[in-house]
Each structure stands twice: as C-alpha cells, then as structure tokens.
C-alpha cells in the first residue's frame, strides 16, 4: 500500500460488550458497535445517554470497565470534540490551530479550509469564531490528518437549522469523496435521519440500530424520543407534500 490507506475488509473500529461506570452510575451497558470504511454511522440518543462516553471509549480516551475495543492497524483518526473553548489569554489564529494537525503548509491549510466552506476565517482568532465557523474549522483540522475514520461529536450543536442542513450535506460529501468511515454523535433527529447510512440508537444500551427508515419505526426508538420522533415524522411528511 503506497499511501498506507486501509482497504482490508472488516471494521475500522469496533467495540464489543462495552460497559462503563462513572462512580456507581452505569453509563454504558453491553454496547456493541462497529464502523466500516465508506460508512456513515450516526449515534443518536437523548442527553446523558452515553454518546460522548462511547465516542471517547472508541477513541481510546477512556478505558471501558468491561468489553473490548479493536481498531485496524495504523488507523488514522480525525476527531472533532463536542466543544472547544480557547482561553481568551491564548493568542491563537485559525491557521495556527490547523497547523497543530501536524501539517503546516499554508496552501494545504487554506485549501482544506476552503473545502469545508470556511476560507474567510483563515487569519481570525479562534476564540472570535461563531459556533458554526468553529465546527467547520475543527472539521478541517480533522480532515488534514487524512483520516480513515472521522469521529464527530455533536458537530451541529450551536449551529442554526440552515447551517445544520449544509453541514450534513458537507459530511456526506466528505464520505463520498474520501471513502472514510464516519461516526457521528448527535441528539438532533430529523437531519441526522435523512443523511445517514446506519443509525445506532443509544440510551445506556443499544435500543435499536439499522437503516434510518427501520429505526424510525422501531417501538424502542419511538418510546425513547416520543414527541420528538413524531415531530420528525411530521417534518418529513411536510416535505413530501402528500396530504392524507
């Protein structure tokens, strides 16, 4: 393999029987998950359902109490954390932030930033960016690492609805162009459901998983999200322009 890309079959990363306890609280209970190349897996679940913990376990940032995490050899991971706050005393512009990926050629940095639609902020201070701009800049830093696996934790929190739609289109485009595996954790339902290959619905344990269509009809999913789930149904109904 001249470029070192992972093409072997089998998942990029997988977790089997993962259990995590924070103090006495069981955060994750017997969770199985796998992400393959060229696959966009979305992790949904209400706040406190263990999405971020599962992401951290898969990234090796947290050790599970039970179960195991296996990743393919030489796996390159690009990661965007849920939130990032640069202390106001730290002078840091976007160019420098991107260079922390290990790539410092300004041309490549600018090109990558343009590809995520944030070329205008190249010389801005990180802490002055809007929520949406920061998410794009973080995505650019993750992409600079030429990842086999892209892990995005709540990539559209603090982004307005229009921005969210654009962002999910961008993520699909990245998957199509680069063929990397993408794990996306999110608690907003409707956009996620339309943009993803496979949904894993989490609430401490895996409630249900599968194709978005199947999951959205699953009783466990409907019970977990209740009103929100029917709002999604209404949302897609609204856009189909079929009136019953």
């Amino acid at each position: 393999m001249s470029d070192g890309a992972i093409t072997a079959p089998g998942p990029l990363v997988s977790g089997i029987g993962i259990e995590v306890k924070h103090g006495r609280r069981t955060v994750l209970d017997n969770v199985d998950i796998a992400i393959h190349r060229n696959e966009l897996v979305t992790l949904i679940g209400p706040n406190g359902s263990g999405k971020t913990t599962l992401v951290r376990v898969l990234l090796g940032l947290e050790k599970p109490g039970k179960g195991s995490v296996t990743s393919s050899a030489d796996l390159r991971v690009g990661y965007t954390p849920q939130s990032l706050t640069v202390d106001r005393t730290l002078p840091l512009d976007v160019q420098r932030f991107l260079a922390m990926s290990g790539i410092s050629d300004p041309e490549i940095l600018q090109k990558t930033l343009t590809s995520v639609g944030a070329s205008a902020v190249f010389n801005q201070e990180i802490r002055l960016l809007s929520g949406g701009e920061l998410k794009r800049v973080m995505l650019a830093r993750a992409l600079l690492r030429e990842p086999d696996l892209l892990v995005l934790d709540e990539p559209t929190a603090n982004v307005d609805v229009h921005g969210q739609t654009e962002f999910y289109e961008l993520i699909r485009k990245i998957r199509d162009e680069r063929g990397c595996g993408i794990l996306l954790a999110s608690h907003d339902l409707h956009l996620v459901m339309s943009a993803t290959d496979r949904v894993v619905c989490l609430n401490g344990h895996v409630c249900c998983s599968g194709l978005p269509d199947a999951v959205s009809r699953d009783p466990a999913y409907l019970e977990l999200f209740g009103e929100a789930a029917s709002a999604v149904a209404f949302y897609s109904h609204d856009h189909d322009h079929h009136h019953a």
Partner: peptide, 17 residues
C-alpha cells in the same frame, strides 16, 4: 512546547493526535 500548546487548546484532541 508544541505538545503543551496542543494540550492547552484541547486535551482529548491532542491525545487523539
């Protein structure tokens, strides 16, 4: 230096890198 600045910006991100 580089590692310290990276950790200061975001510890988990630095670790995955």
């Amino acid at each position: 230096w580089k590692d310290l600045v990276a950790i200061t910006v975001h510890e988990d991100l630095a670790r995955t890198e």
